[in-house]
Design a protein around this nucleic acid. Structure first.
Lengths: 338, 338
DNA sequence: TTGTAAGCGTTATCAC
DNA sequence: GTGATAACGCTTACAA
């Protein structure tokens, strides 16, 4: 816990020189600069957080609000938290957790006390209560996910619509005429913002491309192996030759197991594309085409946006979509001729 | 973002009176006290975090370090994070996330900058690198979990040994002479601190009570349904009449499914106790006896310990174990006579 | 290129 | 019971 004056004394310079040498906010002769940095390192100096907050304009802390609903898929959520933390650290920011039952209270609190420079919002619901709070506070707020009412908000997300179209187009181009979408558990279509976006767009695009399409959830609240199994079998029985998956790892595992059991060769008898999977699909027993949801991409962008907004609070808000990327693993092939 | 001087002016008192009226750190006449509080509320006043840190002794922030290894069971981990956050908020503390690859860097950083009053350590490994850091820094540090080398450390945890004994005793008392322990995935026995403790104690106690016992993991890295299924069948075939479970929800589901498939009635043909389950076992298809691992209990205690240590840095360190509690659901019965 | 000094908004130590 | 006021450790004009 060395202080700036100790560093200054040890380096034989003034306090402000130390501050400037370390922050680089004004030119310092390379020589003293080096000396200051060396001394600071030796003494293990780090600016006192409270003093920095008070004197500077910034706290170097982001709040991260996460409702942690029971329906939330924990592993996915954790990779977003981790990605946000890593992105923040790259810019010398720390993450303060806001898990209050009413996240709103926390947002108001950190705003009122000036504890954070910006707020990142995770796990966004279609009718998220945090939208109203975000509008009522001065602290820059970035949503990772898109609520229904997003007028005047900064939002970041994978372009789920583009991803869905990409998936449909791929199987349509390969010649498939019947596709089945196996989706998330039913509750997430009410509680989360992106499952409905995928479902809607797949249906639209399939219609545009003249494909017959069906849809099934993967259970009620969490992945229900029986439900998934039944859905896969129904899809096959109804003549679907291409399966679009939008779900978590468990669901993928059950789908692959069911296909194996039915002796359907992936990329031969049946084509598969996984849309917006946030887990490592290369860990699956069979490799499948994926349009991944990359938490790092969204979180990096969200942090950039937050910083830009801190820098210029009057800049224009808007939705920023991350372009989807198709990863071919050979799981899509032309349908077999009967 | 009203400031204290605005509150003082509006209430017609001095700045220090506002501070004391709000903190209660010195007697204030009930009358002015009420008035100050009312004005503060009306103006939405909250002390500036930076100023409070600088002037006061405290930051009102805990760091929470979590390595977030791939082997970590995300839902369990999240319930600990949540429990820690809730416990902290009860004492007007916030949680700062430390997810650095090397958590050690983060611990040093927040210590050097005086960003936090104490550090809570989650997901403790037997040979945790954070032990050395904790010893080298002045910031109070509380481990939630017990590393092998815990000399001079503050640790909090469920009394896994007592829980294991409780489980063995229960089935022994019911008359069982052959028990099988179905444990965690193999890797956690190296990477985590508590699975070996349960395994070791079950074996010891079973020996003491004259029971024959076997042990099987539930997979390599994560729950492997086939491995669990095989382990259950092997256990039954080898004559085990009581199953002790120490694992996550997936594993429990597979065990119950396998027993159902083999037409073994729980609490009749076979007895079951789940040791240190951190999920909601009442959500399982069949109710089973449980000695739950309650994150709230550990985290509340950890926060209390941290606060006590902040208050008196010289107080004695030590291990604090949470007593296990047996929850009877009728899944243990005397073994059937052949 | 560097040094001096005025805040930043609290808490805590004095007085009264 | 209440009011001045000196820290707290830094950032950042303003001087030199």
């Amino acid at each position: 816990m060395a202080r700036i004056d100790e560093v200054a004394a040890a380096a034989g310079v003034s306090i402000s020189t130390v501050s400037y040498a370390l922050s680089g906010k004004r030119p310092i002769s390379p020589d003293t600069r080096r000396r200051v940095i060396e001394v600071a390192r030796r003494l293990g100096y780090a600016p006192n957080a409270g003093a920095r907050m008070l004197a500077g304009r910034l706290t170097h802390i982001f709040a991260l609000t996460e409702p942690l609903r029971r329906e939330t898929h924990a592993p996915t959520h954790m990779s977003f938290v981790l990605a946000a933390a890593v992105a923040a650290r790259r810019h010398d920011y720390d993450i303060l957790l806001l898990t209050d039952q009413q996240a709103s209270d926390g947002m108001r609190r950190v705003t009122a006390s000036g504890l954070v420079d910006a707020i990142l919002v995770l796990d966004v619901a279609p009718d998220d209560e945090r939208v109203a709070i975000a509008r009522s506070i001065a602290t820059p707020t970035v949503f990772i996910g898109i609520p229904d009412d997003h007028e005047g908000l900064d939002c970041v997300d994978l372009d789920f619509e583009a991803a869905a179209r990409l998936a449909v187009d791929r199987v349509a181009d390969a010649g498939h005429t019947r596709v089945a979408l196996l989706g998330q558990p039913a509750t997430t279509y009410r509680l989360s913002n992106f499952p409905p976006r995928v479902r809607r767009t797949v249906a639209q695009r399939a219609d545009e491309r003249g494909l017959r399409h069906t849809f099934a959830t993967s259970g009620e609240v969490v992945t229900d192996a029986d439900a998934v199994r039944t859905a896969v079998i129904d899809a096959l029985d109804s003549g679907a030759t291409a399966l679009l998956l939008h779900g978590v790892d468990d669901m993928h595992a059950v789908v692959l197991a069911t296909l194996a059991e039915r002796v359907r060769r992936i990329g031969v008898d049946v084509s598969i594309v996984s849309i917006a999977a946030s887990f490592d699909t290369t860990k699956l027993p069979t490799q499948i085409d994926t349009i991944p949801l990359i938490p790092e991409a969204s979180c990096d962008l969200a942090v950039d946006l937050a910083l830009a907004r801190i820098d210029d609070p009057r800049r224009e808000t808007g939705i920023h979509l991350v372009a989807p990327e198709y990863r071919d693993a050979g799981s899509v092939a032309p349908p077999l001729q009967d």
